[in-house]
Computed example of a mutant assay.
Amino acid sequence: MGNDKKKKGPFQFMQFSVIGIANAAIDIGVLNVLLIFFHTEDQGLLLLYNTIAYTLAIGNSYFWNASITFKRSAEGSHWQRLTFIGQAIVSLGVNNLVFFAGNVLLAFIGVPNWLRYNIAKGLAMFFSFLASFFMIKYFVFKDFGAGKVKE
């Protein structure tokens, strides 16, 4: 049992990472599509675009992580949905904060807009990915019945 628990953590992280790559494609793809069709340098609109992109990616994340990564402990209960929404809001805050700060810092050093937005988005995705994994693993899909056989 202890050995199974040791394998579960890295394997879950790997599964979460693969799903995270799909989420990243959605996240950065939607942001770039919005920037192509509705280009702006307004920080408020950039945060709105970032929020839209992140929200679509987090919906994808919930579906696949509940179905694959945390399938054993995902019950689909109201409590899990509420805690998932809570962690999504916290992760969105991390994502928006890093995206905003990255944009400001990169603008200050003179990085061109498109490159600046994408570097800031990459940093935002990385930090919100880490925050999201640990919140999902230890709060949302926590296996409270470890050792208990589910029927």
Rank of each mutant, 00 (worst) to 15 (best):
M1T: 05
N3I: 14
N3F: 12
K5F: 03
K6S: 05
K8A: 11
G9F: 14
G9I: 15
P10N: 10
Q12Y: 06
F13L: 15
F13N: 07
M14Y: 05
Q15D: 10
F16P: 00
V18R: 06
N23M: 09
N23K: 10
A24Q: 06
A25F: 12
A25W: 06
I26N: 05
D27C: 10
G29F: 08
G29Y: 08
G29I: 11
V30G: 00
V30K: 00
V30Q: 01
L31G: 03
N32Q: 15
L34E: 09
L35V: 05
L35W: 03
I36F: 11
F37L: 15
F37C: 13
F37R: 12
H39L: 05
H39Q: 08
H39P: 02
E41N: 15
Q43C: 00
G44H: 14
L45A: 09
L46Q: 10
L47Q: 15
L47P: 02
Y49C: 04
N50T: 07
I52D: 11
I52C: 14
Y54F: 15
Y54R: 05
Y54L: 07
T55K: 06
L56C: 14
I58R: 01
I58A: 02
N60Y: 06
F63A: 13
F63E: 14
W64P: 00
W64V: 01
W64I: 03
N65E: 10
A66T: 03
A66M: 04
S67T: 06
T69I: 15
K71F: 08
R72T: 10
S73W: 04
S73G: 07
A74Y: 02
A74P: 00
E75C: 01
G76I: 13
H78A: 08
H78G: 01
H78S: 04
W79F: 12
L82Q: 13
L82S: 13
T83A: 08
T83K: 14
F84K: 01
F84C: 05
Q87E: 12
Q87T: 15
Q87N: 09
A88D: 08
A88L: 12
L92E: 13
G93N: 15
N96V: 12
L97R: 06
V98W: 04
V98H: 06
V98A: 05
F99S: 01
F100H: 05
F100L: 14
F100V: 03
A101Q: 11
A101W: 09
N103D: 14
L105W: 07
L105M: 13
F108C: 13
I109V: 11
I109G: 00
V111D: 02
V111Y: 01
N113V: 11
N113G: 03
W114N: 13
W114A: 14
R116M: 14
Y117G: 00
Y117R: 00
I119K: 03
A120Y: 01
A120N: 04
A120I: 06
F127G: 03
F127Q: 07
S128M: 11
S128A: 14
S132T: 12
S132R: 04
S132D: 06
F133T: 03
F134G: 09
F134L: 15
M135R: 08
M135E: 13
M135I: 15
I136T: 11
I136N: 09
Y138D: 12
Y138A: 07
G145Q: 10
G147Q: 12
K148L: 11
K148G: 02
V149P: 00
V149R: 08
V149K: 11
K150V: 14
